[in-house]
């Protein structure tokens, strides 16, 4: 691997005491140190140390689960930046949107990226679920990870939906009004559930605050927890399901 001057420098860096003190290992030249690179790292140890070559082929997953996760990462970063310019109050929230457009440097770009990634994540998660279904990825011992997936789907939809209200424009207000009216159709509890969600009988400033807290704190935290369980279960369940065609051939 290490032939170019860049790689040689990198390898020398990896041999320093400082590098080793951080990563608990030197360069990963042998399978032993490569294993260490995975399970000796708090973030990577959620992955298996080795994987089947067949499950790494693009058509095994189309990286749809990975893309779902990466979009979640992009959303967390752009979301944190957006929070710096946002007040969950009426009508200040709407003015903040205007400021993002006309005052904040690259504010439009920031908002575009967040909104785009949000749409893409809903798409990616649905597509991932259907792809997992068609390759039989829900079969034992993966049953429970499928259930965890359904929870993640609901979290993704709810994240997207709570974020939809935050700009406090006509689009936001009426989409949430239409949506939450449906909840009233629920027998017995409908009115109460809607009242709790909105903090009132109408979509107003209490609703904005509640959706803000759900969108920026509660739901992302839940999503992180369930994503962690989802990934950990892939490893514990013995790796991914390989599409049948690939399983038969070599």
């Amino acid at each position: 691997m290490s032939t170019t001057p860049f790689n040689q420098t990198l390898d020398r860096l990896r041999d320093t005491r400082f590098w080793k003190s951080i990563f608990r290992r030197g360069p990963a030249r042998t399978n032993r140190t490569r294993s260490l690179a995975i399970f000796g790292n708090i973030f990577l140890h959620i992955l298996p140390v080795k994987v089947r070559e067949k499950s790494l082929r693009a058509r095994a997953t189309y990286y749809l689960g990975s893309f779902s996760f990466f979009l979640f990462v992009v959303l967390s970063i752009t979301g944190a930046l957006l929070m710096l310019y946002y007040h969950p109050a009426t009508p200040q929230a709407y003015r903040d949107m205007k400021d993002l457009r006309f005052v904040v440097s690259n504010g439009v770009f920031l908002r575009n990226l967040h909104r785009l990634a949000a749409q893409a994540m809903v798409l990616a998660v649905f597509w991932h679920m259907f792809h997992v279904f068609y390759r039989g990825g829900y079969r034992p011992p993966h049953e429970f990870n499928w259930v965890v997936g359904v929870v993640l789907l609901l979290l993704t939809l709810f994240l997207s939906y709570t974020g939809y209200l935050l700009p406090w424009d006509q689009l936001a207000f009426w989409a949430i009004t239409v949506g939450t009216n449906i909840i009233s159709a629920m027998p017995v509890l409908g009115k109460q559930v809607r009242f709790q969600l909105l903090g009132g009988n109408l979509v107003g400033e209490n609703a904005l605050l509640r959706f803000y807290v759900l969108h920026c704190v509660v739901l992302p935290l839940l999503a992180v927890v369930f994503i962690a369980v989802h990934f950990w279960r892939i490893q514990k369940d013995g790796g991914l399901t390989v599409p049948e065609d690939d399983e038969r051939k070599n």
């Binding site: 009426t90 009508p91 709407y94 949107m97 205007k98 457009r101 439009v108 908002r111 575009n112 967040h114 909104r115 785009l116 997207s160 939906y161 939809y164 700009p167 406090w168 424009d169 006509q170 689009l171 936001a172 207000f173 009426w174 989409a175 009004t177 239409v178 949506g179 109408l202 979509v203």
Partner: peptide, 20 residues
């Protein structure tokens, strides 16, 4: 560009009012 419409107005119902 991400859409942004007029300020929310409970008295002005768009037709149709669409969900995401």
């Amino acid at each position: 560009d991400a859409p942004l419409e007029q300020l929310a107005n409970p008295l002005l119902t768009p037709n149709p009012a669409k969900a995401p």
